[in-house]
Design a protein around this nucleic acid. Structure first.
Lengths: 257, 257
DNA sequence: CCAAAAGTGTTACAAGTACACCCATGT
DNA sequence: ACATGGGTGTACTTGTAACACTTTTGG
């Protein structure tokens, strides 16, 4: 059984390729049907779900580890990734689930095994195009699925707190870095962009003020095209003006002082 | 020689008490003579300076490790501490300096020694009362001193970049969390508070607008007392209204949306 | 008595908020 | 034809920026 082999190999040989004590957890946000979604893995040997995560190769930049983990779960490259916090509570206890696993799989693993040690976990959040993602489970899980941010299932360890922290950070960053580019299709309408903001911020925004503010950033290009086949008045399509978008990101959007 | 003993012990027995692969670096900010200062350690076996840092005890919360490290260097408890980024470039190479040390001290250490491995470092910044600090060196350094943020000496590894990142983060946080409370004496004048802000932000601010804005936060108490013995008109003293200060911190100062 | 710093107030402009009208589209 | 959502404009409120005058103090 391939899964068994792979899990056993990770337990027994992981310490040769990964650095110990440090893991990575990714909160992958997507947007679909006007809802903010998070990509989760159903654990094999527990009823809870888990964040896509992994370990850091001995000579790998931590950012690259996160990127690698993300590519494996989504099939996407060039993902928008942002480190947001490192979780260092000794009682996060990655061990509980790991112990359950070796018990279920009846792998012969000493208590000193690297995976049974305490882990500090570096949290990254990612913004991805929901449609483009091909959710792919890993060897420690039975499936990989999107979950509405408002209806998250039971999650292992402190993963729920990690999601909450990621969302808080994303909300903060929203003021500095317009995120639509990463979460929407190439072409989108203003109402769609607004729904995205409303969903992330979990509050209603004024239609007209939102439009004015977005336009004022000067990073959007309004197309002559309109969204077809929808009920009511057909809205205009927009795309990000990548040149101006990246320039604005570099210069920063807001400073107050 | 006590230093030798302690360093040797860390190399040889550190892996029994600390978790591997993870270190902590602290950027300790103080304010003195209208200048922003950073507390640095002069390394024993190199000409460069280093950030106060350390490792995480096996059962210790990472926040507590940072707190412990800070207490050891400053003699202060209850310090304002904020995790701001985790540095994970494999080429940060903590090893260079460690290797230099074992060469100088002629300690017999195998290449597999825990301290010669790659480290991921969690960055914390701290805001402390300059006057209250008693700078104390550790066993890897010959002295511990304040340095002006604008005149930093040569620093080991990526420590300079860590300081820069800490300062950037502090500037960002300034909009959300007024920091005067941690960096100034209990009683202070408005011009002193303004100097602090100007120093952190590295820009002049308008006297009158600054005062109005600060007062509008409603977290200061104006005393009847004035600063005595200074040239020119004596300025009023202020203290933080701790009750309102903490309430404001919890509620947040700014949200824009 | 004067230079330098501190206290205070006013005005102009930009940004954010609230709200109203008309238009296009599918049912 | 009409209900629903989309496009656009305008007044009001708040916040930020720029700026001037008076007061106090030590030298």
């Amino acid at each position: 059984m391939a899964v068994f082999k792979k899990v056993e190999e990770t337990f027994l040989k992981g310490h040769k390729v990964f650095i110990p004590s440090v893991s990575i957890d990714c909160v992958i946000f997507g947007f679909h049907n006007n809802q903010l979604k998070v990509l989760l893995l159903k654990t094999l040997y527990a009823k809870e779900w888990a964040l896509p995560g992994g370990f850091i190769l001995k000579e790998e930049h931590v950012d690259d580890s996160a990127k690698r983990i993300l590519e494996e779960r989504t099939g996407l490259q060039d993902i928008f990734l942002q480190q947001f916090y490192t979780f260092g509570d000794p009682k996060r206890s990655d061990q509980v689930y790991a112990r359950q696993m070796i018990k279920e799989l009846q792998i012969d693993v000493p208590i000193s095994n690297w995976l049974l040690q305490r882990f500090v976990s570096i949290g990254y959040y990612a913004l991805v195009d929901f449609e483009a993602v091909n959710p792919t489970r890993d060897f420690f899980s039975e499936s990989c699925d999107w979950h509405d941010i408002h209806e998250l299932p039971e999650m292992i360890m402190d993963h729920r707190a990690i999601v909450d922290q990621a969302l808080l950070t994303l909300r903060m960053h929203l003021n500095y870095h317009p995120v639509g580019y990463n979460l929407l299709q190439e072409k989108f309408t203003m109402p769609e962009l607004q729904k995205l903001y409303e969903t992330i911020l979990d509050q209603k925004l004024d239609r007209r003020n939102f439009q004015r503010k977005m336009v004022s950033y000067g990073i959007l290009k309004k197309l002559r095209e309109r969204r077809k086949g929808v009920a009511h008045k057909s809205p205009f399509l927009y795309v990000f003006d990548l040149k101006k978008y990246h320039k604005a990101l570099k210069d920063g959007f807001q400073t107050t002082w």
